[in-house]
Design a protein around this nucleic acid. Structure first.
Lengths: 215, 215
DNA sequence: GTATTGATTTTTGTATACAAGAATGTTGAC
DNA sequence: GTCAACATTCTTGTATACAAAAATCAATAC
């Protein structure tokens, strides 16, 4: 498992962008970053390339790379896409999930419930992530799994914000139960529909998302 | 538009991989490629990074990058995912597509029909691509559009193979008509279902896909 | 004061040099 | 002949050097 220096830098940068360390449109200075990481420009440039590929930054030739924090519209679009990906996963999972997979899903949901009772938002956040990943896995489609994980990771910081709002955790948990039920009975259409609704951002959730953006 | 040398190399490499110039597992030699493109290792390495990011190659640290031609299973998974992405686009497009968009879609389909009558597979292939892209655009979701285009591009070489089989073009065209109808009447569920079925690979199509792989 | 042109400085992109790990080949023991 | 230990060669990853484009600044014209 040999990690290159560039890999670590890429991860660090990703974290920094997620933490909102950089404003939208800000230029990422190769030389400055190289100094900060005590490394030459080469691995920094490699890391920047990745940020660009993953859509977190934009590269303008001969000008540099500029970070792109998604605005409300793009965020909505990403959540909308995530909802469809999850619906797709649910559709397949309902037909393909094994008993073991369903067991792991129920376990994850149990841990979600524990977190809600303890009012531990951080833990709920984490277990909720696992719950959804179990469904991605249940779809039995490595490519779709990868795409779902990728977007889930990208949306991570924004989901975190949302969960802080009152009642979200309890409601989310109730929806989980319905989803598990649909998957257990093998109802593809229902599973897809429930997951789409579960992830879709609209109405009150939309307001919360936008509000979270400004902080 | 300032294209870097590395960008051109990345494109060329992508083309070469698409054309099956490299076998699965083959190592991409930086030095050899640098010589071939009459350039230093630096831009070659940048291009290789992209191949890895786009999933067309795998990087093993300190060992090099090896191209990964998808096998039957992964190909099926990608087509399955494409079907779901198209279904999602169709779902949104049915609700959001403008009259202009519908007009462009009909135009594209007309050109598809012309191609079928001329039995011009290459032209059908091209116009069919545009037809689908019109639907992606109709979804009015830039992020989803980007994802759809990305996977469509990745699957391009395999779709090409499929169209060579007898009757595929005519059947595909008939399905287009149904899809247009669903989009015009704004039936999201039907549009999603039709597009999913249109893109899904199974039964005879599966055999054709596998057969095409071996040549 | 503003704008424009040209010189100067930065910054990106590419080439080359160097360091370290991996692969390969050779020698010697058995 | 097989295997193991070592030396050699190759290849990747990083650092540095250089070229060219862009940004910045200064001087001049108006």
């Amino acid at each position: 498992m040999g990690l290159k220096r560039a890999d670590q830098i890429a991860e660090s940068l990703e974290q920094l962008v997620f933490q909102g360390e950089y404003k939208d449109g800000e230029r990422l200075d190769e030389i400055r970053l190289a100094e900060q990481f005590s490394v030459s420009r080469t691995p920094v440039r490699e890391a920047l390339q990745r940020l660009v590929m993953s859509g977190m930054a934009e590269q303008i030739p001969r000008r540099g790379v500029f970070i792109r924090q998604p605005g409300p519209v793009e965020l909505l679009e990403m959540f909308e896409t995530m909802a469809e990906l999850e619906a797709a996963c649910g559709r397949f999972a309902a037909a393909r999930m094994t008993d073991e997979g369903l067991e792991r899903l129920s376990d994850a949901n149990r841990r979600c419930r524990d977190a809600v009772e303890k009012e531990d938002a951080a833990e709920y956040y984490h277990e909720n992530e696992i719950f959804h990943q179990e469904i991605y896995r249940g779809a039995t489609n490595s490519y779709l799994l990868g795409e779902a994980l990728r977007l889930q990771n990208r949306l991570k910081p924004y989901r975190r914000v949302q969960l802080r709002f009152r009642g979200r955790m309890a409601q989310s948990l109730a929806e989980h139960d319905e989803i598990i039920q649909a998957l257990k009975t093998g109802d593809s259409e229902l599973a897809a529909k429930l997951l789409r609704a579960h992830v879709t951002v609209q109405g009150e959730k939309f307001q919360q998302l936008i509000a979270g953006l400004k902080n």
